[in-house]
Structures are given as C-alpha cells and as structure tokens.
Design a protein around this nucleic acid. Structure first.
Length: 417
RNA sequence: GGAGGAUUCGCCUAGUGGCCUAGGGCGCACGAUUGGAAAUCGUGUUGGGAGAGAUCCCUCAGGGGUUCAAAUCCCCUAUCCUCCGCCA
C-alpha cells in the first residue's frame, strides 16, 4: 500500500514514478480525490457522533419526564449517524481501492522503461570457456542427480526429483546458505508454505501476480511463491521494539508459471516447485537503501563461494513488481546457454508491505511503518542447474567449489557412478 | 470431523444495557524522599486517526445485528484450551 502522506506531499514525484514504470499517471489524481472525499465524509460522521455521544450522556442523567423527549430526539439523530457512517465506510473503501491501485514509488536512480532498459552494474569472474558444453539436464542425468522424466510421470511438466548426489547438493547448498546467514546475524527460520489470503495480499502477490499463485480453494489458503510472504506476515499487526530484524527463511516455493509456456521448458531452471533460502529484513525507513546494498553484498558473497561468474543488474522501473521501489538481480553464467541467467533477486519494498500488514516500529516521531526488504540467498533448483552447467569439466565430472565441500563429505568432484 | 470452554490495556484481572469517558494489580517511565540504592509515596502508561492547540472521533479478538444507548444481548468468523475420533 502506497504512502498516502507521500502522495499528498509530493504528487509530482509519484507521477514521475508512474511514468518511469510506464503506468497510469491519472491514478495519482484519482487517489487524491478519493482521499478528499474520505476526509469530508469522516468529518461529517465524527461531528454527528460527537453530538450523539453528548445526547446519550444527557439521557443517562435526566429525570424520566425529560427522558422521553430526549430519547425521541436521539432516535432521530441515530438515523442520521447511521447514514453518515455508511457514507464514511463507502468513502474509505473507495480510498483503499485507489490506494492499492498504485504500485510502490520507485527509488531515485532506477532506470526508466521496460525489460530492455535494465542496467548492468557489475560483471564478476570469467565465464568458463568450454567446447560443446552439456546442459544441466544431461549432466544431471549422467550423475543420476536429477530425474526429470519421473518428475513428469509423478507430478507433470516442470517437476523433478533430486536423487543421490542431487539430493545431497540441495542439503549442502541449504546448509551453506544458512551457515552464511547465521554468521551474518540472521535468525534462521523454517516457514510455512501455505498462508492466508490477507497475508498473500499484504505482500502484494494477489495483484498482477495473482495468476502466478496456487490457491487451495477448499481451504482458502495460498501456496507461497517465496518465503518472503510468510516472513513478511510473521510480524503482521505488530510493533517491533528493535530494528533491524533479519530472518533467513527456508521453505518450499510454488509457482504456476502461467504465461511462461515455451520459456525454459528444459530442465529445472523454471519449475512449479523448488526450495529456497530467503533473506528478509525489517529496518527503519531511513536505513532501507543501505540495507538493500547489504543484502546485495550477501548475495554476492554466496555467488563468490560457489565460484560462479555473474553480473549484477539494476532492474528497470517497468519490470519491477508492484511492491518494489528498486530491485537488483544477480545473473550467473550458464555455459550451455552462453548467457547470464537470473539466480537471485533482492528488492527494497520500503513501507509498501508493512502498511498493508500493519508492521511498525517505535521512533521519536511515534510509531512508524518499517521498511521491508528481501533477497534470495539460494534458490536451490536453479542453483544446482547452474553449478552443474558452470562447473562441468571436459572429462564429464563436475568441479565442487571449495566452500561447498565440507557439506558434501569433502568431495572435490562429482563423477558418474 | 464431533462436544464443551475461553479471548478486556505489555502481562494478570474486575466488569450481566446508561454511574465504563473501562476499575485494580504487576511491569514500565518520570518525580519526591535518600549520601546512593531498596522500600515507600505521587504522577503517567492500549493503540490508531484529525487538529497549531484545547479538544474530538475510533478501539474490549474480527465482522454484522438489536437499541436513543453495547465490553455487556443476538448472529457469523477467527484463534487458543480441554475431551473424543483420526494421525506422522
């Protein structure tokens, strides 16, 4: 939910943000009009209520003769109050709609425009030079690490089994990620993968991404696409005594991938289900941009541990989700594709989520909404795909990065049995 | 899934239609007392919104209803507890 005060104080900045996103500027004026209407309706209601409260106070203290006359008067006033209350409720609903129609205001410096306008901020490492590289599907099959055929047999397209060294790789990556996060002060969390509608809506995933989300209609629950959802909901309706608070959440993630037909159909790069370790921070608003840089730094640290060549991308405004004010992706090199592909993503959602979820912290200026930020530490399936692809050797084995070895029984290479 | 019970301020609790503009205790904050502290005493202490301010409105799990008037009566929902059933 957008900061109403910001829209009132600086509507031009919000209009500029809408322009950068390629979104509708007139929504800003619609919101201002809705807010004016709400304020007027609220003032009318409050005045009538004050009058009614005063009248009822009199009824209490007056003798029975006068009482009947007062009650008759109060009865009339009660009808007016009821009507004013209905108008107020309607105006508030209209405001809420106008307010949720607007996406977050983008941060200064975000490239304007769509997907093609994103800016590469940094390129790290040297992509390995390989002749006729195999992709992770071939390598995974040879290592008996990824079983895509049986995944399809059991669950359908875009499902997989991790077996043998593949399953061990998952636990190794999760443990490495959790160890790094814990050392950095994150509280490790295992989070539920099913959440209530209001939590899903509060994190902004029921707007434009609604088609991406699995819903259990019988139980009115949603399967999360990221543990960001549960970690944001964790402190819903709470006042945090101290910030920053940082969580590293592990959960399964589920995505319908509607509208991605034909994209990454091969392998486990784009799947309906995967496990992920996600960083999530609650910070003071003035600290949000710094925290965003810290999250990015921790993501880079993890990439470095995996000894991957990657680049950092500043995502253009039109490609941001509605909750994000800014987003940085890390794309790692996939030799078989000859391309960088997204492995992690970190977003600064400022107070967009915390307003809807009612998460605040104490400040000298009173209780204020906190900023929330999230960042992928390790999306397991895609990371395994990248590791196999990136670290394949000409002899058919796969090199194990040094940082991962302690979690794989000291193994330095993965070789077919 | 079935049957009961519960939900009031950070915590514990009082409260069966108007004296609740929610009382008390604990905790917390500030002050007095003290050489300093404990103890004691006093004051303050749910949260949100509007306003320069005095104030005003909303808030007794959430939503709806009855009434001139609801923490209190009625309906629905959520959560927790106990028992039964099922179960890793």
């Amino acid at each position: 939910m957008i900061d109403l005060k910001l829209v009132r104080d600086d509507p031009d900045r919000v209009r500029a943000s809408q322009r950068a996103r390629g979104a509708d500027e007139s929504l800003v004026d619609a919101l201002l009009a809705a807010d004016d209407a709400r304020r007027a309706a609220l003032a009318r209601y409050e005045a009538l209520r004050a009058e009614q409260n005063e009248l009822n106070r009199q009824v209490r203290s007056v003798s029975s003769d006068e009482k009947q006359a007062l009650i008759a008067k109060a009865r009339h006033l009660a009808d007016e109050v009821k009507a004013a209350d209905a108008e107020r409720a309607q105006a508030e609903e209209a405001l809420r709609e106008a307010q949720t129609a607007l996406p977050n205001v983008v941060e200064d410096g975000v490239p304007a425009g769509g997907e093609g306008n994103s800016v590469v901020l940094d390129v790290v490492g040297t992509p390995p030079q390989l002749e006729n590289p195999r992709d992770h599907v071939e390598i995974g099959a040879a290592l008996k690490a990824i079983d895509i055929e049986r995944g399809a047999k059991v669950s359908g397209a875009r499902f997989y089994f991790l077996t043998g060294i593949g399953a061990q790789l998952e636990f190794a990556l999760v443990n490495l990620a959790m160890a790094q996060a814990t050392a950095a002060g994150f509280i490790p969390v295992v989070a539920p993968a099913l959440v209530k509608p209001e939590i899903m809506a509060g994190t902004g995933f029921l707007g434009e991404h609604a088609a991406e989300v699995y819903r259990l209609a019988d139980d009115d629950l949603y399967l999360v696409g990221t543990s960001e959802v549960a970690l944001a909901g964790y402190h819903a309706n709470e006042i945090l005594e101290t910030v920053p608070v940082r969580y590293a959440g592990f959960s399964s993630c589920f995505r319908r991938e509607a509208g991605s037909y034909g994209k990454d159909t091969r392998g486990i790069i784009r799947v309906h289900w995967f496990d992920k370790v996600e960083m999530f921070s609650y910070v003071a608003t003035e600290d949000a941009q710094d925290e965003h840089q810290r999250l990015l730094a921790w993501e880079r640290e993890f990439m470095d541990k995996l000894e991957l060549a990657y680049r950092v991308v500043d995502i253009a405004a039109g490609d941001l989700g509605i909750s994000a004010a800014r987003k940085f992706d890390i794309e790692a090199w996939f030799p078989s594709q000859g391309a960088y592909r997204e492995l992690t993503s970190t977003s600064n959602c400022t107070t967009f989520q915390s307003r809807r979820l009612n998460i605040r912290t104490r400040t000298p200026a009173g209780n204020q909404p906190v900023a929330t930020l999230n960042g992928t530490l390790c999306a397991v399936a895609r990371t395994i795909a990248c590791l196999l692809d990136h670290h394949q050797q000409p002899d058919g084995t796969v090199y194990v990065p040094a940082a991962l070895r302690p979690y794989l029984g000291g193994r330095e290479v993965l070789a077919p049995a």
